[in-house]
Protein backbone atom coordinates (compact mmCIF):
# COMPACT_ATOMS: atom_id res chain seq x y z
CA UNK A 1 0.00 0.00 0.00
CA UNK A 2 1.42 3.29 -1.00
CA UNK A 3 1.98 5.52 1.93
CA UNK A 4 0.10 8.74 1.71
CA UNK A 5 2.52 11.55 1.76
CA UNK A 6 1.39 14.48 3.82
CA UNK A 7 2.93 17.65 2.65
CA UNK A 8 4.66 19.42 5.48
CA UNK A 9 3.20 22.80 5.85
CA UNK A 10 4.92 25.62 7.51
CA UNK A 11 3.37 26.90 10.70
CA UNK A 12 4.74 30.34 10.13
CA UNK A 13 2.08 33.01 10.07
CA UNK A 14 2.75 36.39 8.68
CA UNK A 15 2.31 38.72 11.60
CA UNK A 16 2.93 41.94 9.72
CA UNK A 17 -0.72 42.72 9.13
CA UNK A 18 -1.43 41.99 12.75
CA UNK A 19 1.24 44.42 13.85
CA UNK A 20 -0.19 47.03 11.53
CA UNK A 21 -3.61 46.73 13.09
CA UNK A 22 -2.24 46.69 16.60
CA UNK A 23 -0.27 49.87 16.09
CA UNK A 24 -3.13 51.54 14.30
CA UNK A 25 -5.36 50.98 17.31
CA UNK A 26 -2.53 51.96 19.57
CA UNK A 27 -2.01 55.28 17.84
CA UNK A 28 -5.74 55.92 17.94
CA UNK A 29 -5.83 55.45 21.69
CA UNK A 30 -2.72 57.51 22.21
CA UNK A 31 -4.20 60.43 20.34
CA UNK A 32 -7.71 60.09 21.67
CA UNK A 33 -6.74 59.55 25.27
CA UNK A 34 -7.02 62.07 27.97
CA UNK A 35 -5.68 60.86 31.23
CA UNK A 36 -8.02 60.66 34.12
CA UNK A 37 -7.36 63.56 36.42
CA UNK A 38 -5.96 62.54 39.77
CA UNK A 39 -8.91 62.30 42.09
CA UNK A 40 -9.00 61.01 45.57
CA UNK A 41 -12.71 60.42 45.55
CA UNK A 42 -14.70 58.04 43.43
CA UNK A 43 -17.78 59.74 42.12
CA UNK A 44 -20.43 58.39 39.82
CA UNK A 45 -22.20 61.21 38.06
CA UNK A 46 -25.86 61.13 37.18
CA UNK A 47 -26.95 61.36 33.57
CA UNK A 48 -28.53 64.27 31.80
CA UNK A 49 -29.46 65.28 28.27
CA UNK A 50 -27.16 68.28 28.42
CA UNK A 51 -24.64 68.19 25.62
CA UNK A 52 -22.41 71.05 26.69
CA UNK A 53 -18.87 69.98 27.33
CA UNK A 54 -17.35 70.38 30.72
CA UNK A 55 -15.14 73.46 30.85
CA UNK A 56 -11.56 73.05 31.97
CA UNK A 57 -10.31 76.56 32.50
CA UNK A 58 -10.77 78.51 35.69
CA UNK A 59 -12.81 75.87 37.44
CA UNK A 60 -13.81 75.76 41.04
CA UNK A 61 -15.40 72.46 41.84
CA UNK A 62 -17.30 71.18 44.82
CA UNK A 63 -17.64 67.41 44.93
CA UNK A 64 -19.58 65.19 47.24
CA UNK A 65 -19.39 61.44 47.31
CA UNK A 66 -21.79 58.71 48.36
CA UNK A 67 -21.04 59.09 52.04
CA UNK A 68 -21.65 62.82 51.87
CA UNK A 69 -18.01 63.82 52.16
CA UNK A 70 -17.58 67.22 50.57
CA UNK A 71 -14.43 68.32 48.75
CA UNK A 72 -13.33 71.48 47.04
CA UNK A 73 -10.93 71.55 44.13
CA UNK A 74 -9.46 74.00 41.68
CA UNK A 75 -8.35 73.44 38.11
CA UNK A 76 -4.63 73.08 37.53
CA UNK A 77 -4.34 76.02 35.15
CA UNK A 78 -3.04 79.46 36.09
CA UNK A 79 -6.42 80.89 37.10
CA UNK A 80 -7.18 77.92 39.28
CA UNK A 81 -3.81 78.05 41.01
CA UNK A 82 -4.13 81.74 41.64
CA UNK A 83 -7.53 81.28 43.22
CA UNK A 84 -6.37 78.34 45.30
CA UNK A 85 -3.54 80.45 46.65
CA UNK A 86 -5.82 83.35 47.48
CA UNK A 87 -8.26 81.01 49.20
CA UNK A 88 -5.52 79.47 51.32
CA UNK A 89 -4.14 82.85 52.30
CA UNK A 90 -7.48 84.31 53.27
CA UNK A 91 -8.55 81.16 55.07
CA UNK A 92 -5.31 81.18 57.02
CA UNK A 93 -5.86 84.81 58.00
CA UNK A 94 -9.54 84.55 58.83
CA UNK A 95 -9.29 81.41 60.88
CA UNK A 96 -5.88 82.13 62.40
CA UNK A 97 -4.33 78.96 60.99
CA UNK A 98 -0.92 80.51 60.39
CA UNK A 99 -0.15 78.57 57.23
CA UNK A 100 3.45 78.71 56.08
CA UNK A 101 4.29 79.37 52.41
CA UNK A 102 5.16 75.67 52.06
CA UNK A 103 1.74 74.71 53.36
CA UNK A 104 0.07 77.14 51.00
CA UNK A 105 1.93 75.66 48.05
CA UNK A 106 0.78 72.26 49.25
CA UNK A 107 -2.77 73.59 49.32
CA UNK A 108 -2.42 74.55 45.66
CA UNK A 109 -1.04 71.14 44.81
CA UNK A 110 -3.64 69.14 46.74
CA UNK A 111 -6.48 71.33 45.54
CA UNK A 112 -6.25 69.81 42.06
CA UNK A 113 -7.20 66.42 43.45
CA UNK A 114 -9.56 67.72 46.10
CA UNK A 115 -9.40 69.00 49.64
CA UNK A 116 -11.94 67.71 52.09
CA UNK A 117 -10.96 68.45 55.66
CA UNK A 118 -12.53 70.67 58.28
CA UNK A 119 -10.83 74.05 58.59
CA UNK A 120 -9.32 73.11 61.95
CA UNK A 121 -7.53 70.10 60.47
CA UNK A 122 -6.28 71.97 57.44
CA UNK A 123 -2.84 72.84 58.81
CA UNK A 124 -1.90 69.30 59.76
CA UNK A 125 -3.41 68.01 56.53
CA UNK A 126 -1.21 70.31 54.47
CA UNK A 127 1.88 68.80 56.04
CA UNK A 128 1.26 65.44 54.39
CA UNK A 129 3.56 64.26 51.65
CA UNK A 130 2.18 63.45 48.22
CA UNK A 131 2.00 59.74 48.97
CA UNK A 132 0.37 60.27 52.31
CA UNK A 133 -2.15 62.57 50.65
CA UNK A 134 -3.16 59.83 48.25
CA UNK A 135 -3.76 57.26 50.96
CA UNK A 136 -5.21 59.65 53.52
CA UNK A 137 -8.95 59.25 53.94
CA UNK A 138 -10.22 62.77 54.17
CA UNK A 139 -13.26 63.22 56.41
CA UNK A 140 -14.87 65.77 54.08
CA UNK A 141 -15.77 69.37 54.78
CA UNK A 142 -18.57 69.41 57.34
CA UNK A 143 -21.79 70.77 55.86
CA UNK A 144 -24.44 68.93 57.84
CA UNK A 145 -25.83 71.62 60.05
CA UNK A 146 -26.33 75.21 59.06
CA UNK A 147 -24.34 76.58 62.00
CA UNK A 148 -21.21 74.69 61.11
CA UNK A 149 -21.36 74.72 57.35
CA UNK A 150 -17.65 74.98 56.69
CA UNK A 151 -18.02 74.93 52.94
CA UNK A 152 -19.24 78.42 53.61
CA UNK A 153 -15.84 79.30 55.09
CA UNK A 154 -14.04 78.01 52.04
CA UNK A 155 -16.34 79.84 49.65
CA UNK A 156 -16.16 83.00 51.67
CA UNK A 157 -12.36 82.83 51.68
CA UNK A 158 -12.34 82.31 47.93
CA UNK A 159 -14.60 85.26 47.22
CA UNK A 160 -12.83 87.51 49.73
CA UNK A 161 -9.51 86.59 48.16
CA UNK A 162 -10.62 87.42 44.65
CA UNK A 163 -12.44 90.53 45.78
CA UNK A 164 -15.84 89.13 44.96
CA UNK A 165 -14.86 87.94 41.49
CA UNK A 166 -16.37 84.51 41.04
CA UNK A 167 -14.52 81.76 39.21
CA UNK A 168 -15.76 81.49 35.66
CA UNK A 169 -16.92 77.95 36.13
CA UNK A 170 -18.40 76.85 39.40
CA UNK A 171 -19.01 73.14 39.09
CA UNK A 172 -20.88 70.77 41.28
CA UNK A 173 -19.77 67.18 41.07
CA UNK A 174 -22.17 64.93 42.92
CA UNK A 175 -22.51 61.21 43.29
CA UNK A 176 -25.67 59.37 42.28
CA UNK A 177 -26.19 57.94 45.73
CA UNK A 178 -25.79 61.02 47.91
CA UNK A 179 -28.95 61.82 49.82
CA UNK A 180 -30.65 65.13 49.21
CA UNK A 181 -29.81 66.96 52.47
CA UNK A 182 -26.12 67.11 51.53
CA UNK A 183 -26.97 68.59 48.16
CA UNK A 184 -29.27 71.06 49.87
CA UNK A 185 -26.56 72.14 52.28
CA UNK A 186 -24.04 72.60 49.50
CA UNK A 187 -26.61 74.71 47.67
CA UNK A 188 -27.22 76.67 50.84
CA UNK A 189 -23.52 77.51 51.09
CA UNK A 190 -23.48 78.60 47.44
CA UNK A 191 -26.53 80.78 47.89
CA UNK A 192 -25.17 82.34 51.04
CA UNK A 193 -22.11 83.48 49.13
CA UNK A 194 -24.08 84.84 46.23
CA UNK A 195 -23.33 82.08 43.77
CA UNK A 196 -26.61 81.43 42.03
CA UNK A 197 -25.42 80.02 38.78
CA UNK A 198 -23.32 76.93 38.45
CA UNK A 199 -22.98 73.75 36.50
CA UNK A 200 -23.61 70.18 37.49
CA UNK A 201 -21.27 67.58 36.11
CA UNK A 202 -23.24 64.84 34.40
CA UNK A 203 -22.65 62.19 31.83
CA UNK A 204 -24.40 62.23 28.52
CA UNK A 205 -27.71 60.56 27.93
CA UNK A 206 -29.80 60.48 24.78
CA UNK A 207 -32.91 62.57 24.56
CA UNK A 208 -35.97 60.28 24.62
CA UNK A 209 -37.83 60.28 21.33
CA UNK A 210 -41.12 62.12 21.07
CA UNK A 211 -40.48 64.63 23.83
CA UNK A 212 -40.53 68.41 23.23
CA UNK A 213 -36.75 68.70 23.57
CA UNK A 214 -36.28 65.87 21.09
CA UNK A 215 -38.46 67.64 18.55
CA UNK A 216 -36.69 70.92 19.09
CA UNK A 217 -33.26 69.43 18.61
CA UNK A 218 -34.41 67.65 15.50
CA UNK A 219 -35.71 70.91 14.06
CA UNK A 220 -32.39 72.55 14.77
CA UNK A 221 -30.60 69.77 12.98
CA UNK A 222 -32.71 69.98 9.86
CA UNK A 223 -32.32 73.74 9.66
Amino acid sequence: MPKLKIARKSTWVDMTAFVDVAFLILSFFMLATKFKPPEVVKIENPKSVSSENQPEKDVFKVSFDKEGRVFVSFSSDQDGKEKAQLTAEVLSRQKGLGLTPAEISNFIKFSVGGIGVPVTQLKSFLNLTDDQYKSFKQPGIPVQDTLNNQLNDYLNALLTGTGGRKPENVMLNGDNGTTYPYFKNVLAAFKKNGIFSFKLITSLEGVPAGTPLYKKRKEQQTK
Binding site: F29, A32, S48, S50, Q54, L200, I201, T202
Partner: peptide, 11 residues
Protein backbone atom coordinates in the same frame (compact mmCIF):
# COMPACT_ATOMS: atom_id res chain seq x y z
CA UNK B 1 -8.48 56.59 28.97
CA UNK B 2 -11.74 58.31 29.72
CA UNK B 3 -13.96 57.94 26.76
CA UNK B 4 -17.13 59.62 27.90
CA UNK B 5 -16.27 63.22 28.55
CA UNK B 6 -18.35 64.67 31.34
CA UNK B 7 -20.96 67.22 30.41
CA UNK B 8 -21.97 70.38 32.18
CA UNK B 9 -25.57 70.86 33.18
CA UNK B 10 -26.40 74.49 33.90
CA UNK B 11 -28.42 75.24 36.97
Amino acid sequence: TTMSTPKAFKL
